[in-house]
Design a protein around this nucleic acid. Structure first.
Lengths: 229, 229
DNA sequence: TCAAAAGTGTTAACCATACACCCATGC
DNA sequence: GCATGGGTGTATGGTTAACACTTTTGA
């Protein structure tokens, strides 16, 4: 608005850090690049923003096209705009992070037949562009956010045991938690519905299943409540 | 990366929510637009990103050109990309927020002679584009961040009284704080240097001045400390 | 001497932490 | 019957919150 016409136009992309949880590990969904630059290397799913779609629409479209993942928690992370982050030309990317239920999500190199696969966050391959930095920022955000907003539930199946929930927090926060204190705190929030269902086919006492009650959560946030683990 | 060439190119701007504090009020710096659309209305300082500058460089350049403000705390806020947020054409904007010392900063409609002025956040005029929404997001972020990172000091002169600091927190958080408890907590963090200087020319007992010790703060954050008000 | 704000401690309620054993189930 | 994880309560120490009066200064 301060410079004279013509307005400069810049290539704008979205990239998504998709987190999933499988038994022991927090995982990130990556796709294999077919084209140069970085052909054959792993990268975050993403692509250029079309002129007639919002940023979040672009992120959802790319995820669905590249990996078949459609229903997920999606939140804007940060916008990366270093001049030299893409060797071809100036590309600014708006990064999103997403949480999906089950790390073994039905991923497939969709429309363009690229390979997609889950990698444990602790053992990522080398990544194209500045994507390793983007993943670091996403991890820090997830770790911070999981403490004061109940987004962790997005990583679990709708019915889960308290032990599974605790493992999730221990995995994301990278610290052990006391079982009794964890249960006390979680149940004290009254955000979980206790179900009359139990684990099946386990070689030990079956654990009770719970379900996150989003309605109660909304009522609490509206009256100025702060979720804390 | 998933669509065939040609890559779409989009106009990309930065907009800054500059906060300043003057005695009683939290204020935001606005500029008056000369050109259509929204000619004559107030807007956030900002402008288009040049092809050879990073996003933060663009934000600092625009601020300096439009308002003369140069030294400040600047942090990326959020990227707004609704398709219709600018009536001329698709414009995605990366919003930043900034904190400056003294609401009576030497602002001037710099390079292009636009008027710049401070407005109390509680009484903003109607704003161009989606800038009112951007200010709302910035306020929420400031309110949240001030609780766990000592960015509040960026709004005060380098030497300040504890009462001034408390007023700052009360203003930003929009809640009264207990004087004795506030002092106890703040001093317990050991982030302030007690100076042998006092207020001048006040019609009551002069208050001691303090200075924020950034070095101590860095040492604490490195060893995993969390500032909490 | 009055007005205005500075400065200062203690108590009680609450919250977080640490910690160990019995229970149910499948093999 | 044994291995595996499920489920449960209490006591203690630390933290937070509530609260009022005396001091200093300039006008």
């Amino acid at each position: 608005m301060s410079i004279p016409s013509p307005i400069p136009h810049i290539a704008l992309s979205v990239d998504c850090v998709v987190f999933g949880l499988d038994d022991a590990d927090l995982k990130v969904l990556l796709v294999e690049r077919r084209l140069e630059p970085y052909g054959g290397e792993w990268a975050l799913p993403g692509g250029f923003v079309h002129i007639d779609e919002s940023l979040e629409q672009a992120a959802r479209r790319e995820l669905s096209e590249e990996t078949g993942v459609t229903k997920l928690y999606l939140e804007q992370l940060y916008t990366f705009g270093a001049c030299d982050r893409d060797p071809r030309e100036r590309v600014v990317t708006v990064a999103y992070y997403a949480l999906v239920r089950r790390g073994n999500y039905d991923v497939h190199g969709a429309s363009d037949a690229r390979r997609a696969a889950w990698f444990p966050v602790a053992k990522l391959p080398s990544l194209a562009f500045d994507h390793a930095a983007i993943v670091r920022v996403a991890l820090a955000r997830l770790k911070a956010k999981v403490r004061y907003q109940p987004i962790g539930f997005e990583l679990l199946p709708t019915k889960f045991t308290l032990t599974a929930l605790q493992r999730l927090y221990e995995t994301v926060l990278e610290m052990p938690l006391d079982k009794r204190n964890f249960r006390k705190r979680i149940l004290a929030m009254k955000l979980l519905d206790e179900l009359d269902e139990w684990e099946q086919n386990v070689a030990h006492r079956a654990a009770r299943l719970y379900r996150f009650n989003e309605r109660k959560y909304r009522r609490l946030t509206e009256s100025g409540f702060n979720f804390e683990v």
